[in-house]
């Protein structure tokens, strides 16, 4: 018999007919209608067997479904890993291709008495410089990736978030002002001190400010505001008057390697790193944007340290 405790009431419905006919059989038996009782008993047994068969089939189907779900999750995971690896491969392949071309070119120059040519030293130096810069780019990518992969546990310290943000704002302000980008501050004065990981939060703020400045390019505003919000948390809002984000990109911008910068410019890791940092800090980060009207990134952070699981 199946273990009843694992069955919900619905799964017992198929047994209703057998229970009823069994009851009927007993009743007929008591009223000495032996033949009818026997018929009812046979019916009870067959319907019981049918019901049992039915529930087993359902159970099997359910198990198969579970298995399929698991397979689906696994294949989604694999797809994500695949996407990530092709992102990495792509990012690294470009510099590698350039390095390859440059070395070919250098070999070409050094062939025969090519080295005697008057512009040979300059050509070689140029090639070398390009190779060095491509190697640096690869290093930057692997550094960021490692940073991303390393499960750095946050170290929780009290922080004055207004001051923390203001420090970072000053860091980007100089370059921004040269492009006529204005930083507008709206700090809530009596914001509570937040238990968080200050250097990690600084990185996030820098990423958001840099993205905003990039999206504006020239002439525009970046507004920064902080306020206390419900559930003992603080809200940090970064809005810009930049290009905005198309709808079809909104759910991709936090993915590793998603970038709309020209090849060789952005790694597309800024927002995915920021996202994982904020989650680690027990908070969340959201985006709202409309093309042509700029973008707004909002961070919610708990005031008390609460460890978010990644």
């Amino acid at each position: 018999m199946p273990n009843e405790s694992r069955y919900t009431i619905h799964e017992l419905y198929p047994y209703a007919a057998s229970v009823l006919t069994a009851g009927l059989a007993i009743a007929l038996c008591l009223s000495k209608e032996i033949i009818w009782a026997a018929v009812a008993l046979v019916l009870a047994v067959t319907s019981f067997l049918a019901a049992r068969r039915l529930t087993r089939e359902i159970k099997k189907a359910n198990e198969q479904k579970c298995h399929l779900d698991q397979q689906l999750i696994q294949s989604q995971k694999l797809a994500a890993i695949g996407e990530l690896s092709s992102g990495i491969a792509h990012e690294i392949n470009n510099p590698l291709a350039i390095i390859g071309q440059e070395t070919e070119w250098m070999k070409q120059i050094m062939k025969g008495d090519g080295l005697q040519a008057p512009d040979a030293p300059d050509e070689l130096r140029d090639s070398l410089r390009e190779i060095v810069s491509q190697v640096d780019r690869c290093k930057e990518i692997t550094h960021k990736l490692l940073d991303f992969a390393r499960k750095k546990e946050p170290l929780i310290q009290g922080a004055d978030v207004n001051k923390l943000i203001e420090d970072m704002a000053r860091l980007v302000e100089k370059e921004a002002s040269q492009k006529n980008i204005k930083l507008v501050r709206n700090y809530q004065k009596d914001l509570p001190r937040v238990q968080t990981d200050p250097p990690l939060l600084r990185q996030v703020v820098l990423n958001l400010l840099n993205n905003a400045a990039y999206a504006i390019g020239k002439d525009g505003d970046i507004s920064i505001s902080t306020r206390q919000s419900a559930n003992n948390s603080v809200e940090l809002v970064f809005s810009d008057t930049g290009s905005g984000i198309p709808k079809e990109h909104l759910d991709k911008i936090f993915d590793p390697f998603f970038t709309t910068k020209p090849p060789g410019k952005g790694t597309g890791l800024g927002l995915s790193i920021s996202h994982s940092i904020i989650v680690k800090l027990g908070g969340r980060i959201t985006v709202a944007s409309e093309v042509g009207c700029g973008a707004t990134f909002t961070i919610h952070l708990p005031v008390e340290a609460s460890k978010g699981e990644v």
Binding site: H143, M168, V172, P198, Q203, L206, N210
Partner: peptide
Amino acid sequence: VQGMQYGAFDYVM
């Protein structure tokens, strides 16, 4: 900015 990304705790101007 680079320093912050390479793991500096903070900066002072």
